[in-house]
Design a protein around this nucleic acid. Sequence first.
DNA 1: AGCCTAAGCTTAGGTATCCTAACTTTCTTC
DNA 2: GAAGAAAGTTAGGATACCTAAGCTTAGGCT
Lengths: 155, 155
Amino acid sequence: MSTIPPPRTHIGQLLTQLTRLFQTELFEKLVAAGLQDARVPHTHVTAYIKAEGSRLTELAAQARMTPPAMSELVDDLQRLGIVERRPDPSDGRAKLICLTDAGWQAMRIARSAIAEIEAEYARLVGTERFEQAAQTLELLLHEVDAREDRARSFR
Amino acid sequence: MSTIPPPRTHIGQLLTQLTRLFQTELFEKLVAAGLQDARVPHTHVTAYIKAEGSRLTELAAQARMTPPAMSELVDDLQRLGIVERRPDPSDGRAKLICLTDAGWQAMRIARSAIAEIEAEYARLVGTERFEQAAQTLELLLHEVDAREDRARSFR
DNA sequence: AGCCTAAGCTTAGGTATCCTAACTTTCTTC
DNA sequence: GAAGAAAGTTAGGATACCTAAGCTTAGGCT
């Protein structure tokens, strides 16, 4: 007879709860570091924005949002002085969303806060285990994404 | 000299994106299986509801929501015939939120859809790798939760 | 017994974060 | 150079939460 594995919280539940805890902790750290106005949806911009600037439609597609939703987000970050809209020299319709100096400073703060959280997580479950899990998740993300894209191309 | 590890997407990004992909896939499956009206927030009830029934405040606390928000969710699930409110015999103020027969049937469908997704994920990255990652995430969730609770008790 | 405070839940009203539809401007293609 | 497509914005709506305030019942205290 085989041993019955202990029942496990399902992967969706694990992902959902950990996402919430991560976001809570990150934004506590950001506020503590002086980024009072940081909000979770801002990460839809900051996660994808390129150093040379990104177009709105490009950001919207990567964040899987509609352009109007992304436009509002950019409005907000612009009011906060984190990004600015510049004309795109290669296309008169387009604008390049670029980080300002304050935006780069905020990115450094955010990266450092994220590094702190990752270090804490590694401490809690062991560095090697944490790294292995993270790498598995990264692989899984790529695989699921690739399958999604394939499925989309059939429609 | 040591080898430089390849840069990795940070854990928050991995969790966030995988959560979205999981939810999308799950709700596609639920709709395909006849649960047309299933919505993501319903999981805040279904994840925690006990077979004997649960109190609203209990569900709200577990889902980390306010009681009014949970009450609206329960209203919705009641309209859909998934749960019902019964008087709590042990306390005249309280009500027990219970799954109906249709609710139990929906739970079976959802569990099966979740099992399908987990099987697919295991196939994509390898069963052993997937299981190890899931177990690490479960441990991490418990550890972070425990730390949160400790932090809360200091306030 | 009669109060008073607290607990369980609901109602009312507000806010944040998305969405779709429709519009303007600019580019591309024929 | 006219038609159609693409980039972005504006307007209006839906959803999923929140806080504040109310009602009802419980339970301790005098």
